[in-house]
């Protein structure tokens, strides 16, 4: 009974997500879960995003393969949904843009020939939500990010590893958070 705990859905802003490129597995078992470590030390196996879907395009050749772009106040996430994400693909196919959407998904990384790492999200689910849910997400994500920035000086293994690998500038990320909050404030 001690064995199974569901992976937490982390709250990450688009900018931080885009600046992440360290993915690894816990353990050497082929079924060990895959993680993405972000510059502020979030160890992400599942991500929860609420933002605005501003673009969508079916880029598949023979079967449907949807690419969507979801923005938050700091940047945008790329979402890819194909035949193995039928629910998300269906919503993408049917919805209008722009729309507020809640996405639960897995982070995935792709390394280009030039060696750049691109991050994207493979959605488990994608649903239309209201503006208030989106605003609350920005608040919650700001809170989670600030907590992680504070933890960077702590002794948690994720923070240690993030510091070692990214050498993150705490100011850079706290000004990202403050920018997000200020842009939200303007709408009120």
């Amino acid at each position: 009974m001690a064995g199974y705990t569901r992976e937490v859905a982390r709250r990450i802003f688009a900018q931080e997500f885009r600046e992440s490129n360290l993915s690894f597995k816990d353990g050497d078992d082929q079924y060990a879960p895959q993680y993405l470590l972000t510059p502020t030390g979030a160890k992400v196996n599942r991500i929860f995003i609420v933002g605005t879907l501003i673009e969508k395009e079916d880029i598949g050749t023979d079967s449907e393969y949807w690419r969507g772009r979801v923005t938050d106040p700091t940047g945008s996430f790329l979402i890819y949904a194909g035949q193995y994400q039928p629910e998300a693909a269906q919503v993408l196919a049917e919805c209008e843009t722009p729309a507020f959407v809640a996405v639960v998904g897995k982070p995935s990384t792709y390394t280009t020939n030039e060696g750049d790492v691109l991050t994207s999200v493979r959605p488990e689910s994608l649903h239309i939500v209201d503006g208030q849910t989106r605003d609350m997400w920005v608040i919650e994500t700001a809170k989670c990010t600030l907590d992680r920035i504070k933890e960077l000086d702590g002794s948690s293994p994720n923070a240690q590893r993030a510091k070692e690998y990214y050498d993150p500038d705490a100011k850079h990320y706290s000004s990202m958070v403050s920018q997000a909050l200020k842009s939200l404030k303007e709408t009120y």
Partner: peptide
């Protein structure tokens, strides 16, 4: 209260 949250976090 989104506004209050924003103020607190800022």
């Amino acid at each position: 209260d989104v506004e209050k949250h924003i103020e607190d976090l800022l």
